[in-house]
């Protein structure tokens, strides 16, 4: 039997989908800025392994000679990026959502299992590890003990990306106002070092983005839809069939947790008056000494 189960709160969905284009604009305008002094390279000794970025890259994406435009976009969308991120952190803190997102001592072991599974190194049932990086609902479906919305790998990734966001904001401020916030700049090892950290964080966003999208595709439609609609469709076991006899009132039969009465004891009436079935006559008041008090 299918059931709609709430997954992502409205606020988190808004912030997620605001962040997506804004982060895109930040990375794009960042590349317009980086073009003006594109000195970062990966060295191995004196051998350059990769130079950020090849000419063809700038040419294809039309990134050349647009420094002013890049700075303008970057220094305006930075506010949206920052405020949206701040709102997200405050929301998760005050709503209690952080409990689903913040890694605990089990998360790292679990994340390792998820990683091994996703890389097809260990053949685990998806259900037992709730393996996919984005689909944490499998455990609910398989009846495994509930572990919250996200598995260990997700918790680490989704908390890590917030730490990265904070890193981008702080290194960004250090680069933006290196004298007025000189202490901050020095915390990151100086102006040039802050630029490198800012750049590396951007590369990590791109990697995060690729893995994230890949995992979303693997996890499937139900998982993706939840990020838009807020709920997920979950298969639940149908309620146990209770054979109703003529003397058993209908509402009792519908309550699966009601204890089966012993043959000698009178039938225990429901303790609350059912309002869902207006046709059923109200049960006669019985004041049996064995009826447990629920007050």
């Amino acid at each position: 039997m299918k059931k709609l189960v709430p997954k992502h709160p409205l606020a988190i969905r808004w912030m997620h989908w605001i962040n997506f284009p804004v982060l895109f604009v930040m990375i794009w305008s960042g590349m317009l800025i980086y073009w003006a002094n594109d000195v970062f390279k990966i060295h191995l000794g004196h051998n350059i392994i990769f130079s950020f970025f090849p000419d063809g890259f700038y040419k294809t994406l039309h990134l050349s000679r647009r420094l002013a435009e890049g700075m303008a976009f970057h220094f305006i969308f930075m506010w949206v990026f920052f405020l949206n991120g701040l709102a997200y952190v405050l929301y998760t803190l005050f709503s209690g959502e952080w409990r689903y997102l913040f890694p605990n001592k089990h998360s790292f072991k679990e994340a390792w299992q998820v990683l091994l599974h996703d890389l097809h190194i260990r053949k685990h049932s998806r259900r037992s590890t709730s393996a996919s990086l984005v689909d944490g609902s499998d455990s609910a479906r398989s009846g495994a003990p509930p572990q919250g919305k996200f598995n260990g790998a997700q918790k680490i990734a989704y908390t890590g990306i917030i730490v990265m966001g904070l890193g981008s904001v702080l290194t960004g401020l250090a680069i933006y106002k290196p004298i007025q916030f000189q202490w901050l700049c020095l915390c990151f090892g100086g102006y040039a070092a802050a630029r490198i950290i800012h750049f590396i964080l951007t590369l990590l966003y791109c990697i995060f983005f690729l893995v994230h999208v890949f995992q979303v595709i693997l996890a499937g439609w139900n998982n993706f839809r939840a990020m838009v609609t807020g709920w997920e469709v979950v298969n639940i076991a149908p309620p146990p069939v209770v054979v109703a006899t003529a003397t058993v009132p209908a509402p009792l039969a519908a309550a699966p947790t009601a204890p089966t009465p012993a043959p000698s004891t009178p039938i225990e009436p429901p303790l609350t008056t059912p309002i869902s079935d207006p046709v059923a006559p109200p049960p006669p008041p019985v004041d049996h000494p064995q009826t447990p008090s629920h007050e």
Binding site: I275, P282, P289, E295
Partner: peptide, 9 residues
């Protein structure tokens, strides 16, 4: 013992 739940609305 008085169980109020047993009285109709």
């Amino acid at each position: 013992m008085n169980n109020k739940a047993h009285t109709p609305p």
